[in-house]
Design a binder for these strands. Sequence first.
DNA 1: GGTTGACCCTGACGCTACGTCAGGGTTGGA
DNA 2: TCCAACCCTGACGTAGCGTCAGGGTCAACC
Lengths: 245, 245
Amino acid sequence: MLTIGQLAATAGVTVRTVRHYHHVSLLPEPERDASGYRRYSAQAAVDLIRIRTLADAGVPLARIDALLHAQPTEFAAAITDIDAELQRKIDQLTEHRRRITELESGERLVLPPEVVAILDRMRGLGVSERRVRLERDSWILMQALDPRVMPQRVRDKNAGFDDPETTRLYLACDQAVDWDPHDPRLDRLIDDLDAWEIEHERDSGRPGYLKLVVSRISEASPAWQRIVDALAHRALQRRTAGHGN
Amino acid sequence: MLTIGQLAATAGVTVRTVRHYHHVSLLPEPERDASGYRRYSAQAAVDLIRIRTLADAGVPLARIDALLHAQPTEFAAAITDIDAELQRKIDQLTEHRRRITELESGERLVLPPEVVAILDRMRGLGVSERRVRLERDSWILMQALDPRVMPQRVRDKNAGFDDPETTRLYLACDQAVDWDPHDPRLDRLIDDLDAWEIEHERDSGRPGYLKLVVSRISEASPAWQRIVDALAHRALQRRTAGHGN
DNA sequence: GGTTGACCCTGACGCTACGTCAGGGTTGGA
DNA sequence: TCCAACCCTGACGTAGCGTCAGGGTCAACC
C-alpha cells in the first residue's frame, strides 16, 4: 500500500494535487490507517495517471470523471475531439511563435501587409519617422472605424508615390514642418502645391486630396499653417473668379 | 479616437480585458471625454496588440510591462527564451497527444515497456485477466516502493516464462484458484509443484520462488490455501529429514 | 529514550487572468 | 421619443492548484 506522497510521486504530481482531486471527488478517498493516513492501492495509481493524462491534455477536471466512465464509443469520440483540440493549440502556439518575432515593429502586428508596405515605402523615400508614425496612426484609426475604405486609400496612396512630382511635394511638405513660417522656400513650395492641386483636381475630379493628407499635422506646425492658409486663399480666389466669368 | 469597445475589437480582446490591463497598470488609462468614456489613440492599439502578442505567447502579465520597456539586448534575449518555452510547450502537447491514444490500457501509462511486455506475454499465454491485474498491481507497488529491484524481477519473470514446465505450472495454478479445495486434480498439481520447487531450489539457490508469486492471492482462494499448506508441510518434512541424516 | 527530519493531517487564504453579474448613465438611429 | 447598443464602477466567481499555519506520526540515529 502507498502513502499519499508515494502515490503522488508515482504519478508525477504534488500531494496537494491528489488532495484536490479528492476534494472534487475525481479520485475516491481511500481507507485510512491507524494514524489517519490515507493508504492507496495500485489501482489508485492507475486511476490517477489516467486522470493526469487527460488533465495534461487540457480536459477540464469537471469533465474527466464523466469521460472515464463513458461508453467506449463516446470515449473514443471524446478522445478524437481532445486530440483535434490539442492540434489546434499546437498550431496556435506555432503562430504565436511567429508573431513574437515581429514584436520589434508593432505596426506589422496591427496593420495588413499592404499598409505596412506603404509605410515601408515611405521610409524608403526618406519620409521622417514622425510623419510615418502619424500616417500609421491614421491607418489604425481608419481600420478601427471604417475598414471598408482602406483598399481605395491603399490604391490612392500608392498611386501618389508612383508619381514623381507628387512624391517630391510630399517629401518637401514633410521637411517643411519644421521650417520657419517666413522661410523663403515656402513661397516656392506653395506655388508648386497650388499647381499640383489644380492639375490633380482636373485629373481625378476629387479635390482637396492634399488637404486630407496634411490636415492632422497642420495645427502643430506654423509653416504648415501658412501653407494651408495660402492654398485655401488661392482656391477661393479661383472659385470666385470662375463664378465671375 | 476610439472607444474602449473599438479598441478591444481592433486587438481581438474583450472590453473586460482592456479594463483589467488598466487595473494592473499594464496599459495607461487614457483621457476621458465629456461623458466620462475612455478615448484611445492609435498608439494605444499598437501597445495593446503588443501586450496581447506577449500574453498569447504565455508571458505572465506581470512581466510584460518590464519586457516592453527593456533594452533591445535584454528584450531579444527574453524573446529567445519565450520562443524556446513555446517550443517546449509544443513538444509537450505533442507528447500528450501521443499519450491520450494509450488511455484505454492504463497500464501502458504507469509501467515501463519491459513490464508491459511481460503482462502482454501473460495474456498471450492465457493467464486470466484477474491474475494479470494482480500482477500489474504488484509491479506498480514495486515501482513506487523500491524501483531498484525491478530489472532483476523482469529477468526472473521472463526466465520463468521461457521454461515450458514453469509456464505450465503457472497456468495450472492460475486455473486452480477457483477449484474446490477437495478437487482431485489438486493432488497432482501439488506433486508437480513440489518437484518443481525442489529442482528450482537446487538450480538457483534461491528457495521459495513460487511462494513469492502466489502469496498475495492465496488467502482469497481455498484451493490455493491447500496448495500452500501442503507445500510448506512437505518442505518442512524434507528439512527435518535432512537434519536427521 | 530523546531528538531530528521527513512525512502526514485539516483548514483556509492566495494566485492568475479574466468572466459575469448588478445597477446605473450615454449615444445614435428609427 | 424610444430602443438597442454602448459606456461606467464595483464586486464577486472561476479553475487548479500553491502556500502557509498549526498540528500529529514515523523511522532512524545517538
